[in-house]
Amino acid sequence: MKQRMNLADIDPAAYKAMRGLEEYMAQSELNILLKELIKIRTSQINGCAYCIEMHALKARENGETEKRIYAISAWRESPLFSEEERAVLQLTDELTKLGEEGVKDETYDKVLTIFGEKKLAEIIMQIITINGWNRFAISTRMMHNK
């Protein structure tokens, strides 16, 4: 596989728009490890090797353990995640795999109860943002390090 194009060079305005979302997320109140958890899980679902590698590295740099990073793909069966993280991972799965059911009321309500409206909005935007980056990377075949 080889990279198809460098979208940032071909269409700098599109890249700038994506960076704008990333800059918004950098200002959010969400914990950095929760952000990286969302990014890794979304990238796993979408099959984005570039983003999985990038965000696993960032998670490690910010104190995440190898054991938890490995367990993200099987979070439902793992005892390593808190109730709050499980709620966010469920929302991440449902919003990324949107499908016919969309986001279930019970999932939405649980995250809302745990985090409140402002943080729920930030969680939703984090999921949307990484889904955008995954599509950016997958469609252009961005390559991660060997």
Rank of each mutant, 00 (worst) to 15 (best):
Met1Pro: 12
Gln3Lys: 14
Asp9Cys: 00
Asp9Asn: 10
Ile10Gln: 10
Lys16Gly: 14
Lys16Pro: 06
Lys16Asn: 14
Met18Asn: 08
Met18Thr: 01
Gly20Glu: 06
Gly20Arg: 06
Leu21Ala: 02
Glu22Trp: 07
Glu23Asp: 11
Leu30Val: 05
Asn31Leu: 08
Leu33Ser: 13
Thr42Cys: 11
Thr42Tyr: 00
Gln44Ala: 09
Asn46Lys: 07
Ala49Gln: 12
Tyr50Asp: 05
His55Ser: 04
Arg60Met: 14
Glu64Arg: 02
Thr65Ala: 03
Ile72Ala: 06
Ala74Arg: 13
Arg76Ser: 09
Glu77Arg: 10
Pro79Ser: 09
Pro79Asp: 13
Leu80Gln: 13
Glu84Cys: 01
Glu85Thr: 03
Arg86Trp: 02
Leu89Met: 15
Gln90Trp: 00
Asp93Val: 11
Glu94Lys: 05
Thr96Asp: 01
Leu98Cys: 08
Leu98Ala: 09
Gly99Phe: 07
Gly99Tyr: 11
Gly99Lys: 15
Gly99Gln: 14
Glu101Arg: 14
Lys104Met: 05
Lys104Gln: 13
Tyr108Lys: 00
Asp109Leu: 14
Val111Ile: 10
Leu112Asn: 08
Glu117Pro: 09
Ile124Leu: 11
Ile127Ser: 07
Ile128Met: 10
Thr129Glu: 09
Asn131Glu: 03
Phe136Ser: 08
Phe136Ala: 06
Ala137Gln: 04
Ala137Val: 00
Thr140Ile: 01
Met143Gly: 11
His144Phe: 05
His144Trp: 02
Lys146Ile: 12
